[in-house]
């Protein structure tokens, strides 16, 4: 089955630049989610997602149809931008929610007031599950953000973006065996970080 994004890129290469709008519409949500979950910061995620689209637009003529999947190419660009962003920040384990910085590695559980104050706008606001859902998301995002970059990237690509091992291997330029072992290692680390949350709930 032909990749629709790949077909749209071919049209862009033939001069139909409007096809790029479709590519943006189809991919902006997964791209923003990937970067936001990796960085733990939605504002930066949107900025980097836009930068990813700009770089893809510039490189329309360099795109090699059939050489790799479109998604692999897109996530490869985004991954490099994410890694650069982390290096620029120069620190790890710090993430943001809706623009409010939150220290995740202090070792103390967030208070109820913290959780409400940092609740993302997209979280369902039904009173019955608001706090519980927010607490869960906070715990999981904290655990992800505390993972080292080399484990965090493949984990997000696999368990949130649902890429295959082969696609992740291509995206990150890693051997397939290394990709699999890193993802398993990342899941084991995540399990240890979520232990207290799971056991308490």
């Amino acid at each position: 089955m032909p990749d629709l994004d790949d077909e749209l890129m071919k049209q862009c290469q033939q001069g139909n630049i409007e096809a790029f709008d479709l590519i943006v519409r189809r991919n902006q949500v997964p791209l923003v989610n990937f970067i936001a979950r990796f960085l733990g910061d939605q504002d930066s995620a949107e900025d980097l997602a836009q930068e990813t689209f700009v770089r893809m637009f510039k490189a329309i003529k360099r795109y090699k149809s059939g050489a790799a999947k479109f998604s692999t190419w897109m996530y490869h660009i985004a991954s490099n931008l994410c890694k650069n962003e982390l290096r620029n920040r120069g620190r790890r384990g710090r993430f943001f929610a809706d623009g409010v910085a939150t220290e995740s590695s202090s070792g103390t559980e967030p208070t109820e007031e913290d959780l409400i104050a940092t609740a993302p706008a997209h979280v369902s606001l039904q009173p019955s599950n608001q706090l519980e859902q927010k607490e869960r998301e906070y715990a999981v995002q904290s655990a992800i953000s505390e993972l080292p970059e080399r484990y965090r990237l493949p984990l997000v690509l696999r368990d949130l973006q649902e890429l295959s091992y082969e696609e992740i291997s291509e995206t990150l330029n890693l051997p397939l065996g290394t990709t699999k072992s890193r993802i398993n290692r990342a899941r084991l680390m995540l399990k240890d970080k979520l232990r207290s949350f799971v056991e308490s709930s």
Partner: peptide
């Protein structure tokens, strides 16, 4: 515990880009 933590990961809600994104 491994399974439960993965379930939590998969239950993360989707983030929607802001209206200014486009």
């Amino acid at each position: 515990l491994f399974r439960e933590s993965l379930d939590l990961l998969h239950q993360l809600p989707q983030i929607k880009p802001s209206t200014e994104f486009d």
